[in-house]
Design a protein around this nucleic acid. Structure first.
Lengths: 340, 340
DNA sequence: TTGTAAGCGTTATCAG
DNA sequence: CTGATAACGCTTACAA
């Protein structure tokens, strides 16, 4: 407790405001939450009293009493991954506009981590939950069901959501890019993704890649498929392994993180022309991909929109404006640039 | 409320657990928080009852009653800025290990935004506050003082903190880089930063630049100082303006965001050799700077450490292990690479 | 070791 | 429009 010297740390209650304004606490409560329910005179006296005593409402008490909550819990796989930033920002913007607070936690890409966070958020009695992953432990599902809390999953479109989904189809996006590369004339398209274990998005993308090959009556060659950890360095390693391997690809589709950029930087270092030696495509429209030389072909995903729309449908449910279990597919876009 | 079909959404209370275990609610409370205070037999019965009814403690009620809180509020200027990610992650890791929750908000680089968030967090009765900015509205300071909440500021080392500071000196870091460039032989070092209005970090860096020049008995030329918005595009624009201007610099120090990378990409596009045509230095050790061609000289800042250490000193105070108003300078490091 | 009583600071409800 | 009263679900303090 800093300084008891100047003004001691005292938190004033509604009661104090009431006394000072010469009304009952109940009237203060009303004046604060819906000024139209009290007389003009009282409203002003209360406002002044609030300022005078420096009153800050106690939402813990308010929430407990009203059995409502003004906080939403958001679980992301990893805070370090810059891909989640736009989504978080979208969520944050919408929540703030409605007077909600955002509680955030990272599950570390594990279902157990997610379960722990869900438990913690439920204990805080959050009004709603946003989950990036779409696979959960049985206990997590059970707890959510019992609590009756609305939930939005945002990682990828799935057929059997817990409740609501707002996302895009990782499967369709990956498939579309492979078809796009084929249309451009590439016949040996390699595929590099993040590890698919414990990651629905990666798995969906792999399935999309295979689906496209099947449609094109092309064989899925194991040596053209790689799983790499996230990071620029991994992308660099991947491009070297593929290009220097037997029967190298003419194009590489990097379905994750900044792998494609790492690969391009490696090509620059080695003097490999892109797309002359090998074409490169990426999965996310991060700013960097537009500025490197050459700019990299990629998918534009509705990251911010997922956050915004996700928060909106969640609030619609929380505030009783809707009872529907919506599934929103926000789509994607292919950005053709000079790397392919 | 999803599905009332299978099992209706009922939240069980401690009372229910107590009944089922054949003990009083108080005993359940004890069994849950400090199992050593109840008998072995009771502990087991309670545990089973908890599982049986799917009990999830209500921390709103708990916090209200105990007049303690297990949530910490964090205010960042912008969630989109990837620079804050490591700090947030550090905070998150430390808090989780202590059973604390993280409430997060973005103030949009404005003091008013920060004030609004502080008010909201105080209303949630957070146990502590972490602020990135080091300048605040008078009301914000007043509210924090009255609430008696411990606070950590993390943006830059300042002489008159609200309470505690954990950071590095932006002034010293900028100064050190300019001296470093001078030592390498560069005599006309330009300086590009983010707008300094409303940004203590930028201002500190500008002061550091000037301080270095003064020490070197060099004149601060206005045409060698630029303020640019964040982003790769701004860096590209800056390098062009400086290099094509009158009396161009031999080195450019980009003190913010990804400006330096944007500048390098522009040089690549134009075929300007770096550092042949102009040398480039950056301010933050983001992964990209190490992988581009050539790799860019920069400063390594203790981003994650600030989050971790900041959360630690905050928890020390919250949990009464310390009463000190610490100031922690985590320092910085110059990473010399091929761009200078 | 366990239980009882009295709040914590609000809001819902109902009466005036 | 305003106020009294009883929760909300838990913990503190004290008693048994």
């Amino acid at each position: 407790m800093p300084d008891d010297a100047g003004g001691r740390a005292s938190t004033s209650r509604m009661r104090d405001v009431a006394q000072r304004a010469g009304v009952s606490p109940m009237t203060v409560s009303r004046a604060l939450r819906d000024p139209s329910k009290v007389s003009e005179a009282v409203r002003r006296r209360v406002e002044e009293a609030v300022r005078a005593v420096g009153y800050v409402p106690n939402r813990l008490a308010g929430n407990l009493s009203s059995m409502r909550s003004n906080v939403v819990g958001l679980v992301v796989p990893g805070l370090d991954n810059s891909l989640y930033a736009p989504t978080i920002q979208g969520v944050s913007a919408v929540l703030r506009a409605s007077g909600f607070q955002l509680m955030i936690g990272e599950c570390g890409y594990s279902q157990e981590g997610e379960e722990a966070l869900i438990t913690a958020f439920l204990a805080q009695r959050v009004a709603g939950l946003m989950l990036h992953d779409t696979r959960h432990t049985a206990l997590a599902c059970e707890m959510i069901r019992r609590a009756g809390v609305p939930v939005v999953e945002t990682g990828t479109i799935i057929p059997d959501p817990l409740d609501m989904v707002v996302s895009y189809s990782n499967h369709d996006a990956a498939r579309a890019m492979v078809l796009h590369l084929h249309r451009l004339g590439y016949r040996r398209v390699a595929f590099v993704s993040l590890p698919a274990a414990n990651n629905d998005r990666s798995r969906d993308r792999q399935r999309g890649y295979r689906a496209a090959l099947a449609e094109l009556r092309l064989e899925a060659e194991p040596r053209l498929m790689l799983e790499m950890p996230p990071g620029l360095a991994a992308g660099a390693e991947a491009v070297v392994r593929l290009v220097q391997g037997d029967a190298p690809p003419d194009a590489i589709f990097f379905a994750g993180d900044v792998l494609a950029a790492g690969a391009l930087f490696e090509c620059q270092r080695r003097g490999w022309p892109v797309p002359g030696k090998v074409a490169l495509a990426a999965f996310d429209d991060i700013d960097m991909l537009r500025h490197v030389v050459p700019p990299i072909t990629t998918l534009r995903l509705p990251r911010t929109g997922i956050g915004r729309r996700g928060a909106e449908v969640l609030l619609d449910r929380i505030e009783g404006r809707s009872r529907e279990r919506v599934v929103v597919d926000l789509g994607f876009e292919i950005i053709q640039r000079d790397s392919t």
